[in-house]
């Protein structure tokens, strides 16, 4: 778990699955692995779009076909064949096309904020995408067609064992920590969630009315030496929350705790809590960052 992640886990009780990939420049990047639900949603969306495309194609192809096929019975057969064939072609090219053109995103993935990346951190190659998408036939469409053609008479055991085996492949993402499906294993790819983050104002500057305004509350180095980076970042999260009554009460609580822990005698009124915490945050961050410059990183209050 990375440093920044710990604050999330504490405040919201979320533990996201994360992995580190190393970019070709050698920079470790922290990525969040897509959750099962997100991937399922993206897939269902893609299937819907694909079906729409197939139906559209079929509706435009049928009049051409019917204009030069005389017999009705062969019209029906030819029509059926055409549906299945366009289905096969479209579902194989749909994923490939979009994942190439949109940097590893299909329309469904784009909506869900997911992306395909190369697991080793290198460039995403066409051959990796071909590999991950051809395998989808075995993983999903084969069991599907097996389910649809289950025939009680013709060797039920054989069919069931076949189905069971293919379903193992289908549910492979549930059984490994990176949520890889067979296609990801073969293509060396991975699906991650990439949310958009905006750059928020620096709290140490935002809280001050004028740039030269000095802090109302002053802390001694001994008081600042109590906490570490983790507490600082939790405090930052709390300060960034919108001012609701609940958050105000939380802030007053935190205020009280800090005062007690640092041994400050004064009592801070709830109205001043935000001001106090802001000053404390600025002072604590300055202290910890200075320490970091000297190679002294304090992870949390328990570290020595």
């Amino acid at each position: 778990m990375t440093r920044t992640d710990r604050a999330d886990a504490l405040l919201e009780g979320i533990k996201r699955k994360r992995r580190v990939i190393v970019s070709p420049e050698g920079i470790p990047l922290d990525v969040r692995i897509a959750a099962h639900g997100e991937r399922l949603t993206a897939f269902v969306l893609d299937m819907t779009f694909m079906t729409a495309i197939i139906v559209g194609l079929y509706l435009s192809l049928v009049p051409i076909l019917f204009s030069f096929v005389p017999l009705f019975s062969s019209r029906v057969r030819a029509g059926m064949t055409l549906v299945l064939f366009t289905g096969f072609i479209v579902r194989n090219l749909y994923f490939l096309h979009f994942e190439l053109a949109w940097q590893g995103r299909t329309p469904g993935k784009k909506i869900c904020g997911l992306r395909v990346i190369a697991r080793d951190g290198g460039a995403l190659t066409p051959s990796a995408l071909i590999a991950r998408n051809i395998t989808r036939e075995v993983e999903f469409f084969l069991p599907l067609s097996l389910c649809l053609t289950l025939d009680a008479d013709a060797g039920a055991w054989r069919q069931l064992s076949l189905l069971a085996w293919t379903l193992v492949l289908t549910f492979l993402p549930l059984f490994n920590r990176d949520h890889l499906r067979a296609g990801d294993l073969i293509g060396g790819t991975q699906v991650i969630a990439v949310p958009r983050r905006v750059l928020l104002d620096d709290l140490t500057l935002a809280a001050r009315a004028r740039p030269d305004e000095t802090a109302a509350y002053v802390f001694t180095p001994e008081q600042l030496a109590i906490y570490g980076a983790f507490e600082l970042q939790v405090l930052e999260e709390i300060l960034r929350r919108p001012a609701t009554r609940e958050n105000d009460r939380l802030m007053a609580d935190v205020c009280l705790k800090i005062c007690r822990r640092t041994g400050r005698e004064e009592t801070i009124s709830p109205e001043d809590a935000r001001r106090f915490l802001n000053d404390f945050y600025a002072a604590e961050r300055a202290e910890l960052e200075r320490g970091q410059l000297f190679g002294r990183f304090r992870a949390d209050k328990t570290s020595t």
Binding site: L29, E99, L100, G104, A123, P126, L129, L200, D202
Partner: peptide
């Protein structure tokens, strides 16, 4: 130690990395 700045930079670098090292050829 500014958490929001760190998260922003990580996110920005990742997104830029995906653009820079994404597939460059069409189908």
């Amino acid at each position: 130690l500014d958490r929001s700045l760190l998260l922003y930079l990580e996110n920005l670098t990742l997104r830029a990395y995906l653009v820079v090292y994404g597939p460059r050829v069409g189908m």
